[in-house]
Amino acid sequence: MTGPGRPAGPAADTETTVLTAALELLLSEGAAALTPQRLHAVTGVARTTIYRHWPLPRDFLAALIAVAPHESPMPSGDLAADLHAETDLLCDRLRDKPVGAFLRALVTASSADPSCTALRHRYVNDLLEPFRAALAALGVADVEEATLAIVSPLLVDTLLLDRRVDRERAHHAVEDVLARLGAGSAR
Rank of each mutant, 00 (worst) to 15 (best):
R38M: 04
V42Q: 07
V42K: 03
T48Y: 02
T48A: 15
I50N: 10
I50K: 06
I50P: 12
Y51P: 02
W54F: 13
W54G: 12
W54S: 05
W54D: 11
P55G: 10
L56A: 15
R58C: 13
R58P: 11
D59P: 03
A62Q: 10
A62I: 02
A62H: 13
A63E: 05
L64V: 10
I65R: 08
I65D: 14
A68S: 15
H70K: 02
P73I: 04
P73C: 03
P73S: 12
M74R: 15
P75D: 07
S76R: 03
L79N: 08
A80P: 00
D82Y: 02
L83W: 04
L83R: 05
H84E: 15
H84T: 15
H84Q: 09
E86H: 06
T87M: 10
T87A: 06
L89F: 10
L90T: 09
L90P: 03
L90Y: 05
C91Y: 03
C91L: 08
L94D: 04
L94K: 00
R95D: 15
K97T: 14
A101Y: 03
R104V: 04
A105G: 08
L106V: 07
T108D: 14
D113Y: 12
P114W: 02
S115Q: 08
A118N: 00
V124E: 13
N125F: 13
D126W: 12
L128E: 09
L128R: 11
E129F: 14
P130M: 01
R132A: 04
A133M: 10
L135Y: 05
A136N: 01
G139V: 15
G139C: 13
D142I: 05
V143Y: 00
E144W: 02
E145V: 10
E145L: 10
A146R: 01
A149Q: 15
D157W: 00
L161M: 07
D162E: 05
R164H: 06
R164S: 09
V165H: 07
R169Q: 13
H171F: 06
H172T: 12
H172A: 06
V174Q: 02
E175P: 01
